[in-house]
Amino acid sequence: MLNAAVLAIMVTMALALVRAFMGPTAYDRLLAANLFGTKTVLLIALAGHALDWSGFLDVALLYAMVNFVGTIAVMRFFEYGAGEEEE
């Protein structure tokens, strides 16, 4: 049953990647990247349990945090970028 869930997550990640490449506005790319990050956290958690890796939960937790901080960082710097000059 776990493998089915892992497969579903992978499909969603693929869809998110497509949106990241296609996304017209930068916000779409940001959204897709954030989604991709969250899905990877789930992927690591589920696959880790299925293939019984060791120490995978710390990585998953860390990655949830890093993904959140990355999204906030992009929004912060993106706002500066878009606001001040349009090359």
Binding site: M1, A5, L7, A8, N34, L35
Partner: peptide, 28 residues
């Protein structure tokens, strides 16, 4: 797990199909 993965896929498809950014935020 089944429900979770089903929602996952619908969200993903929604992300692609929905025309406007804000509807995609909803899907995500």
């Amino acid at each position: 797990l089944l429900a979770g993965s089903f929602l996952c896929i619908t969200g993903g498809v929604g992300l692609l199909r929905l025309p406007d950014f804000f509807s995609r935020v909803h899907a995500a």
